[in-house]
Simulated assay, not measured.
Amino acid sequence: MYTPKTFRETNPEVLHGLMRAYPFATVVVHAASGFVANHLPFEVAGDALLHGHVARGNELAQMDGAEVLVIFQGPDGYISPNWYPSKHETGREVPTWNYAVVHVHGRLQVIDDAVWMRQFLETLTDRHEAMQPKPWHVSDAPADHVEKSLKAIVGIAITIERIEGKFKLSQNHPVRNQAGVVDGLRQRDGDGDAELAQLMAHTKEGKS
């Protein structure tokens, strides 16, 4: 990934924080037919491990030991030059796109274990059901239905060997332009704009 030093993020807490906040990731692997991409929710299981699951018919279920790239996509959005105070003084600004991504390079392990699989699904479900008024639990489903469902999937674990973070959040602009972008995103308030503005503001505070 092309990552100028200005946009490079190496703090493990920041990287893991984005992965937990945006757990639906893209898994890229080189199969016999070429590059294959799958889209899966993950759990960050410690500092160097990701857990997930796939259907038995998925290519990943047959690729134990394969090298993989997992891409976590955070908030992103178009940035108008009209939001920069400097644009109104010099006109020398152009549009861009702000975003935050984490790339995980690792090795895949297929886990064909019903006990492990159930424990993982309970963890995954409980986390995403936590904000519901009446959270659903795996145990709410009939036992025979759960057993049948478990037979149709396998677990995957990805050992993290290398991790890259790119947080392109207007760090190459003066503080007043960064503030203008945050204000512009909040006023536009489109899909993901509030999250991007919050990330920009939080990153600026953390480095001030």
Results as ranks from 00 to 15, higher is better:
160 I>H: 04
148 K>F: 09
154 V>D: 03
167 F>S: 01
131 M>R: 15
153 I>P: 05
136 W>I: 10
132 Q>F: 07
144 D>R: 08
136 W>L: 13
160 I>Q: 01
132 Q>L: 11
166 K>I: 00
149 S>W: 12
169 L>S: 09
139 S>E: 11
160 I>E: 05
164 E>S: 02
146 V>M: 06
153 I>N: 14
129 E>A: 08
160 I>F: 05
156 I>F: 06
151 K>N: 11
142 P>D: 08
131 M>D: 15
155 G>R: 04
135 P>V: 01
137 H>W: 02
128 H>Y: 15
151 K>P: 05
158 I>L: 11
151 K>W: 01
163 I>F: 00
146 V>F: 07
138 V>P: 05
131 M>W: 09
170 S>W: 08
138 V>H: 04
133 P>Q: 03
165 G>P: 02
158 I>W: 02
129 E>V: 09
156 I>V: 14
129 E>C: 08
166 K>Y: 00
133 P>S: 05
129 E>Y: 15
153 I>M: 09
141 A>F: 04
162 R>S: 08
168 K>T: 04
168 K>F: 08
159 T>K: 11
138 V>N: 08
128 H>E: 05
132 Q>K: 15
140 D>R: 08
132 Q>D: 10
157 A>M: 02
163 I>A: 01
170 S>A: 15
167 F>D: 01
157 A>Y: 02
146 V>I: 15
128 H>Q: 11
165 G>I: 00
163 I>M: 07
144 D>K: 13
169 L>W: 05
131 M>G: 10
161 E>V: 02
162 R>N: 09
160 I>G: 10
149 S>K: 14
159 T>Q: 06
154 V>Q: 03
168 K>R: 12
147 E>R: 13
127 R>S: 07
151 K>H: 12
138 V>G: 13
150 L>W: 13
142 P>Q: 04
143 A>D: 09
153 I>W: 06
129 E>I: 10
157 A>V: 00
154 V>T: 15
160 I>T: 03
167 F>I: 00
171 Q>F: 05
138 V>F: 14
162 R>Y: 07
168 K>W: 08
168 K>D: 04
147 E>D: 14
161 E>R: 11
133 P>D: 05
167 F>M: 01
165 G>R: 00
130 A>E: 14
170 S>H: 11
154 V>H: 05
150 L>R: 14
129 E>G: 10
146 V>Q: 05
148 K>G: 15
145 H>E: 12
170 S>K: 07
171 Q>W: 04
165 G>L: 00
145 H>M: 15
140 D>I: 14
159 T>G: 15
134 K>N: 13
144 D>T: 13
132 Q>A: 14
144 D>G: 06
141 A>K: 12
164 E>A: 02
163 I>T: 03
148 K>Q: 12
136 W>M: 09
135 P>I: 03
128 H>I: 06
149 S>E: 10
153 I>D: 08
160 I>R: 04
155 G>C: 08
137 H>T: 08
130 A>S: 15
168 K>M: 03
138 V>Y: 12
171 Q>V: 03
155 G>H: 09
165 G>C: 00
162 R>C: 05
161 E>T: 03
134 K>E: 12
172 N>F: 10
162 R>G: 06
152 A>F: 06
166 K>Q: 06
171 Q>T: 07
163 I>L: 03
137 H>S: 10
172 N>R: 06
166 K>F: 00
135 P>F: 07
